[in-house]
Design a protein around this nucleic acid. Sequence first.
DNA 1: GCCGACTGACTGACCGGTCAATCGATCAAA
DNA 2: TTTGATCGATTGACCGGTCAGTCAGTCGGC
Lengths: 200, 200
Amino acid sequence: MARAETAAIDKRRLILDAAVRVFARQGFHTCRVSDIADEAGVAYGLVYHYFSSKDEILDTLFLERWNVMLAAIAEADASQLQARDKLRAIAGFIIDSYRHDPELMKVIIVEVTRAANTFGRTHLATIRDAYAQIAGIVARAQAEGVFRTEITPEFAALAFYGAVEQVLTGWIFDSVPVDDEELERSKTLIVETICRGLEL
Amino acid sequence: MARAETAAIDKRRLILDAAVRVFARQGFHTCRVSDIADEAGVAYGLVYHYFSSKDEILDTLFLERWNVMLAAIAEADASQLQARDKLRAIAGFIIDSYRHDPELMKVIIVEVTRAANTFGRTHLATIRDAYAQIAGIVARAQAEGVFRTEITPEFAALAFYGAVEQVLTGWIFDSVPVDDEELERSKTLIVETICRGLEL
DNA sequence: GCCGACTGACTGACCGGTCAATCGATCAAA
DNA sequence: TTTGATCGATTGACCGGTCAGTCAGTCGGC
């Protein structure tokens, strides 16, 4: 029983991991469910044993990762760091996520976050949770007199997240892979560029 | 002859304009070519008389508009303005484009610029022309000692464009329409946020 | 009567999802 | 220990709907 249970969980995971590779390579709309099954080394029908639709696979991948990110943002927010360092932690988390699993980040950004007409629409509220939390950090920094109040928190959050995502998108479609050093440098660059505009 | 020619050009334009509305409403992948023909009040086959494929319609819409934007950026670049005001002009142009035709901007951003796996891929080089030109403005400002050199021009361009696009995306999917005043305020906000981080 | 704009029914490929059948682990009864 | 009943995991052929693109033909100006 334990053996079978583990095997079952593994197969589900196997399909999810295969889907990441296939979505990253071919894109969600362009790939066929059979491509995922083939990549996972699994029969076509098994995909539908674990997931009710092709969409549900992408939903699962997105929510798994986005919830981790929301938790990371909440943790940064709850910490005793300076506002600038909270934002640095968030940018750092996103960039480290890319370092750790670029294919997954590509899928999430390209197929969900930036695919506002399809999955982005479905998950709009969840995506906006992240913006709202970042806006909260900015608002608190403004109340404490660390950030100036000319720029609305919501706007600051969009600009901050937009800058991070655009940089990631640049990497995602670069032919040359990025080295760790540039990843690290970018964390500082983002915070330097955006926070300096927000601080007093 | 002149009559017929004009009529022909009109029909082509009619189809393009209808396509903007349909793409904005339903999304490129979700709509059918017949939807475009119906919206334009034209026979299905006529769409294929003027365009060789569904893709070509979107390509045309994108290139038409993007080339105008590239020209606007080049004009700002060539002007005698301060770097900050050049960037302001660019942000202003993009925001005014949205004001003038929000549906077209929605289509371009959602279906091309942010659709990195489909049309974004095809037009990647064209899209990056814009980033490169913005980077050029930043680089010149750095050489003149107006902007600090810690941040690479390429990075600054991504952050700038990313912030603008993210703000537009926010409007595009907001249920509440944006009033002119907020549009104007946003131009200043973007420049204030980003340029302040770039200036010495 | 020629030429090009225009029409819209049709087709062929494609693909998401279904389902009937098989496999194999487990366990209780013989 | 063997048998066979049970049930979830697994398989992949197949179905049905959708739609981009074709094409044979009509219409109308010159």
